[in-house]
Design a protein around this nucleic acid. Sequence first.
DNA 1: AAAAAAGTTGCCCTGAGTGCAAACTTGCAC
DNA 2: GTGCAAGTTTGCACTCAGGGCAACTTTTTT
Lengths: 247, 247
Amino acid sequence: MSASLSHSAAVPPTSDPPSDGPSRRELNKAATRQAITDAALALLRSNGPGNFTVEDIADAAGISRRTFFNYFGSTEAAIAAVTFGFLDKALQQFRLRPAGEPFLESARAALVELADPMTVAPLAELYSLGQANPQLSRSELEAWDHCTVQIITAARERLSEGVELDELYLRALAGSVISCGKAAMDVWFLRCGGSLTAESLSTLRQLLIDSMGLLGSGFARPDAAPSTTQAANPAPNSTATPSPDRH
Amino acid sequence: MSASLSHSAAVPPTSDPPSDGPSRRELNKAATRQAITDAALALLRSNGPGNFTVEDIADAAGISRRTFFNYFGSTEAAIAAVTFGFLDKALQQFRLRPAGEPFLESARAALVELADPMTVAPLAELYSLGQANPQLSRSELEAWDHCTVQIITAARERLSEGVELDELYLRALAGSVISCGKAAMDVWFLRCGGSLTAESLSTLRQLLIDSMGLLGSGFARPDAAPSTTQAANPAPNSTATPSPDRH
DNA sequence: AAAAAAGTTGCCCTGAGTGCAAACTTGCAC
DNA sequence: GTGCAAGTTTGCACTCAGGGCAACTTTTTT
């Protein structure tokens, strides 16, 4: 781009009336941010993890290297923004649940809500790309942990209706919910390889439901005939969990 | 040190008969490794996280910068070795448990086994140091995750006695156990600030027991009078969990 | 004792991440 | 629309992480 154009044609000067909403500055920032993650993801796809530099991303996003660091502290951070987005959406869903609902039921509902193509697609892609990459999976871990913290906050608001609540209960529960959600996704990738077909997504939903069921039942040993769900069988009944809803 | 002495006086040439045990090479490596983590920890204490370089560590350990990288990929990795050591000890304890024992009971026993001064001391110190440090806590997360993977492996050996086992069950359980262990330690630090008194350690033990109890009971809501354990009360009965041992 | 294997070190290179100051954009008031 | 203030981008320069390579030292083997 020519010298005088400075940086981003982020928000093209369409006939945008001076509408109220977010300011031009905020729009530009959001657009740049988006451009960065897009560029990073594209490079991740084409070059593979670890085979491109911050400068590559900056070039592809049409900004300077220095500006990149104004937005993200590292390549991984830029990519992890995707996961953060996903988990934030989960949080949002969780907060929408009625306050009286049992915690695990809310978690289950929030998670299942996310098992639609548009939402899991980016996560699925990241997952397969980062499968064998330490750098990537590290930031994924960070994102999940961040989500745990958020859930703890959300749960605290929920549960502390006057009652003096137990920190251990809160943290152990939140951590376990996240772990089980993660386990469900892990198994899903293991079985379906991140496929986005309706069948695959149905499996994901069922896995999420089952994992919450396991948690709710205290991991009662599946003594009786447990897992016919083992094979790629999207049968939609949670055989593993006779009592998914307690208390 | 003079030029010809090369590197480490790691294993001083005491009158060591050519005993069988580990070879001189292995001894040297172990000693160097130890010297590195010691130096790193010392610098962490004195300078605070992020305020020293790899070169500083290398100098303090009496090796070259380059050699440092032969042992660890980063400063954080060197420090995280402490956490890894702790968690590996946990794994070791877990594997010692009788194979027939319920999983959660084994986990509980293994974790409680670790709540002795010598073992938790380094972890406690790291915890307080890394409390407000993103770099550090990131590698801590990695260590916990590594432990989860190990537990999954250990549990697979345990549970798969001919039975075709459920991947979801396995992973959700392992992840939850680790999460609960982590939650217990978090709460412990919150309450006791990493103190190593007998009273504090007793609290830690109880928290670990309680968290496993919560998990085993499916987080049944503490409806009745739940947490008198809230205050720094090392009372040794797990009031929160009426049925810690099922199946 | 000499060769082979394993480990250490210095040199040098790429790239991450950051402080700083100059240039540019946007918001706001006049 | 002019102008000023606040917010952003960018180039520059610097420190430090991380790793390849080849020379050199130590340990093991034969």
